[in-house]
Structures are given as structure tokens and as C-alpha cells.
């Protein structure tokens, strides 16, 4: 419960947009939407974060 860690921060980016630049935050490039969702779900579970959709083909994993 009383985790010590970062919150309100983007932990990772999952995208099907190949032009999305990697800059500071880990970026995972997915082949298609299905793979993007799978990666996003796995990352969210691994990092205790939540998946948010930027609606431009990119998901961000944020810990609240």
C-alpha cells in the first residue's frame, strides 16, 4: 500500500506510429492495434500503471 515510487508520471509509451520519437521515456513500437493493446496491458500490470489513450495511435502508461 505505502509504496515508495514515482507517481503522476509517464512510465512508458506504446505506439503503432513509427514516427513517434523516443525521448527520455521508453517507447515500445507495436505492429498493430492488437499488439499495442497487449503490450500496454502487460506494461500497465508490470509497472502498476494505467493505460491512457492519446487517440493518435499512442498509448501512455501513467502511474497515479
Amino acid at each position: 500500500m505505502e509504496n515508495i515510487g514515482l507517481s503522476e508520471i509517464i512510465l512508458a509509451i506504446v505506439t503503432i506510429d513509427g514516427t513517434q520519437p523516443a525521448s527520455g521515456v521508453p517507447v515500445f513500437y507495436a505492429k498493430d492495434e492488437e499488439e499495442r493493446e497487449k503490450i500496454a496491458l502487460n506494461l500497465a500490470r508490470i509497472l502498476s500503471g494505467m493505460v491512457h489513450d492519446l487517440e493518435n495511435g499512442t498509448y501512455v502508461i501513467v502511474r497515479h
Binding site: E37, A40, L41, A44, M50, V51, H52, D53, E55, Y59
Partner: peptide
């Protein structure tokens, strides 16, 4: 509304994953 969870006319939060 897209990925934004809405309750009537109130925009609430962004939920990314389709399963969620």
C-alpha cells in the same frame, strides 16, 4: 467519448485500454 469516460455531460477520465 473517444477514450474519455463521460457521465452525462461531465468528462471524467481517460481510459486507454479497450478491455477497461
Amino acid at each position: 467519448d473517444g477514450s474519455i469516460l463521460c457521465i452525462e455531460n461531465i468528462q471524467f477520465m481517460n481510459v486507454g485500454h479497450p478491455d477497461s
